Amino acid sequence: MTLAATTDESPMPTLTRSSRMAQVEVLHRFEEAEPLWRSFENANHLYTPFQRYDFLSAWQRQVGSREGVAPYVVAGLDAARQPLLLLPLGIQSENGLQVASFLGGKHATFNMPLVHRAYAANAGRADVDAAIAMLRRRADRPDLLSLARQPRTWEGIANPLARLPGQPAITGCPLLKLAPGARPEERISNSMRKRLRSKERKLQATAGYRYTIARSDADIQRVLDAFFVIKPLRMAAQKLPNVFADTGVREFVFDACLSRQPSGGRTVDIHALECDDELIAVFAGVADGHRFSMMFNTYTVSGLARYSPGLILLRNIIDHYAERGYTAIDLGIGTDDYKRMFCKNDEPLFDSFLPLGAKGSVAALGLSSLGHAKRLVKRSPALSQVAQLLRGTLQR
């Protein structure tokens, strides 16, 4: 299949309210989708860095393919076959149903289509309904679209899929908004900065103490090697499952972190506190010039842990991106206490479960009900405590 693709050197035509989605095409191989996909990764389009080609191709190669996920990349086109929207999905068999979900699994904090900005600004409910109707008529359609953890807006523009039926996501995402030109104490209070400086003096007494951003292949390899030693110990201490031990995850993390964008920048930014003897703390995430979104983190299991190295590293990260004009930092799904020390807002997320066939209708209702129940548990301290106790018991 050949679809027209634009590049930064060939600017997109201006879209108007008369531009409507006229057809959808589905690409079943990453290599087939790559030219069109990369043409969406420029300033004319809206997308989160979790939907970049390099990030998701690494995930599909190392994790998705091993889990039986088959690419199902949907391209929405206007009557002139001008690309308007790219939906990076994968199909997996679940309990006898073919379910299409966003690629990236739990390693992508946010999911949404890559979409032309003008189309996103003008698309109405009829546009997205028409796209879903066209998918329903395809012979290769899945039974169900399970579209989780979608932001309602991105960079102030509505996500077109927010016009479809949906419900609040199970768990929110703590968000720190950064006002342009704000003073450091407006980002993090003077009292917290003072406490962290006092703790950091203890770390500064170690030989070679430093805050670094891993940029070279050798630095990235060294930091990740240490991360994969420390993280299992930290998860075990918290009686939590080590998701980084799942098949292919280590390879995915290395592939994604070592890859580069066409601009030359890394697909994943890795921030660390180190000394000559050990990796003290690490936070890694994706950045797009507007927002930094955390992917994974850990901190030492040595005695240096008592000096709050994770919080000290977060202070450095916040200042780093604020000084570069970023307007937001999010710390991933979940409401851990340390996140609330910095993030006073939440990114509103929603889930949509859309049947494309008769078999998918019952499944959509079941997933919706399950999502509501899980959200109720998350919002109730008493129920959450019971769930944690049961999880701990099952893991013994």
Rank of each mutant, 00 (worst) to 15 (best):
V282F: 14
F283G: 00
G285W: 14
V286Y: 02
V286F: 01
A287G: 07
A287T: 02
A287V: 09
G289R: 05
G289Y: 03
G289V: 04
H290Q: 09
F292T: 05
F292V: 07
F292H: 07
S293N: 10
M294C: 11
M294Q: 12
M294P: 00
N297W: 11
T298I: 06
T298P: 02
Y299T: 11
Y299E: 12
Y299F: 14
Y299I: 03
Y299H: 13
T300S: 15
T300P: 06
S302F: 08
S302N: 12
G303W: 02
G303V: 03
R306F: 00
Y307M: 09
Y307N: 15
Y307W: 15
G310D: 08
I312Q: 07
L313W: 05
L313V: 02
R315N: 13
N316L: 00
N316S: 03
I317E: 03
I317K: 03
I317S: 01
I317R: 01
I317Q: 01
I318K: 07
D319E: 09
D319T: 13
H320C: 04
A322E: 10
R324W: 15
G325N: 07
T327S: 11
T327R: 14
A328E: 03
D330L: 13
L331M: 15
G332F: 05
I333L: 11
I333E: 15
G334N: 07
G334R: 04
D336F: 10
D336Y: 12
D336S: 05
D337H: 13
Y338F: 15
K339A: 04
R340Q: 13
R340T: 05
C343H: 09
C343Q: 07
K344T: 13
K344H: 11
N345E: 15
N345L: 05
N345F: 13
